[in-house]
Amino acid sequence: MTATAARPAAPPAAGEPKPRPAPRRKRLVPYWLLLPGILWLIIFFVVPLVYQASTSVQTGSLENSFRVTWHVQTYWDVLQQYYPQFLRSLLYAAVATLLCLVVGYPLAYLIAFRAGRHRNILLVLVIAPFFTSFLIRTLAWKTILADGGPVVHALNALHVLDLTDVLGWTSGDRLLATPLAVVTGLTYNFLPFMILPLYTSLERIDHRLHEAAGDLYATPWTTFRKVTFPMSLPGVVSGTLLTFIPSSGDYVNAQLLGSADTKMIGSVIQSQFLTVLDYPAAAALSFILMAVVLFVVSYYIRRAGTEELL
């Protein structure tokens, strides 16, 4: 067996050999795969947004039909009229998101590192509430927080309600129909959306990193601050987004657990659309909400993206 293994082939034609063309059908495959789903999203997600934008600058009435008059004044009007609800929505959503993070992190940590063979049971328990309609579960909070119920009694006995009353979170001896109840409901409803991404990113952390940090003179708290938490940041980012976005537009909790004073912007949009039938105002409100949320989300993602590198 020698170099005779290589038989020189006939020399190729002068110059560069002709490249072989890629089959055309193959290149079209991804577009065929994308087409139905993307069309669906364009027709039923993008086009509606365009319609909404156009509706928001229309004037008229239900009887005489609406017409595009480029009446941007509507935006200013609704902002002036409903800015308390806007600010309240953002505030409640932010507080609920923060609470979800604070309350959810220990549980995610527990499942990821301390649960041992109980891990699967705990995960099932986190997901299980999903199987009961969230409206039914939110109604259950009405029972839990009911006037004169055990929770109100306990908090009263501890004088917690006096404190929250001063802060304006509750009023008198009541929990229901107060901001605290609404935030409790929001936190409760979106907690799994915080815990699951947190768990996913914590679970990926190699347990030996904790030992290595301990070996390098880090206390458990320092280990958490310098190793565990930074490495779980992707989970923190997606968890906070998954809680903040839906809670900012939610009106179920505000409506079921709150009062007229805790109305969130979602309620306003809903009643403008479905009850008052002032479509331009409703569209403008919805558009502003979308813009604010997208702005907050993109700013946050950008900030989180850079912080992750630190």
Partner: peptide
């Protein structure tokens, strides 16, 4: 790069 090569039958190449 343009390559000419023959691997005879039954060999380990």
């Amino acid at each position: 790069e343009p390559l000419d090569l023959t691997v005879p039958q039954g060999t380990f190449f």
